[in-house]
Design a binder for these strands. Sequence first.
DNA 1: CCCTGATTCGC
DNA 2: GCGAATCAGG
Length: 197
Amino acid sequence: MSWTEERVETLKKMWAEGQSASQIAKELGGVTRNAVIGKVHRLGLSNRAGSAAAKPAAKEKPAAKPEPAARPAPEAAQHRATPAPEAATEPSEIRREPAPAPALRKPVVPAGQPLPPQPSANEISPETLASAREVEKNAKKLTLMELTERTCKWPIGDPATEDFWFCGLPTQQGKPYCETHVSVAFQPMSARRDRKR
DNA sequence: CCCTGATTCGC
DNA sequence: GCGAATCAGG
């Protein structure tokens, strides 16, 4: 494969969109993420558009660092959602927080949205169901952005609330879910029919 | 271990 | 110019 105008086009676009080098490589096909990164550099679009996240520079053996230090200063301090500091630092920590839980996590789906059909208990074998319950306790509780090709994408909880996350356990080869959730998701028609009613 | 980008250097 | 190998880090 070579860097045709079209492929470079795609590369530029995806890189600008913040896609990772490996994602771009998969999209293009025939190239590795290294190739993509190499090309990105050659094209001179390494530091991502305006993003003040400038890498200080990777490895460096020579102690000599000719950097003129003429940097305009990265600036740009992230604005946080004003955590509202505690009024006073009480010596005693009697009051217990209710439950930090998955904490500051915005709902993936706005409240009021109709939820996709959830598997009902009567369609799943008791063993599998029990297994699923167990797994959900050990789930890694990943957010949408944290999912990768080999993390279980089984949704857990209510998307309309903050009490929502994805299983995140290692997926079964080639499947979108972990072993347990695969068994919940993919069932032979016969098994389903037999269990109905 | 999974992943990220950065750099080097033979081709 | 290209990209595998390697590095550095999350």
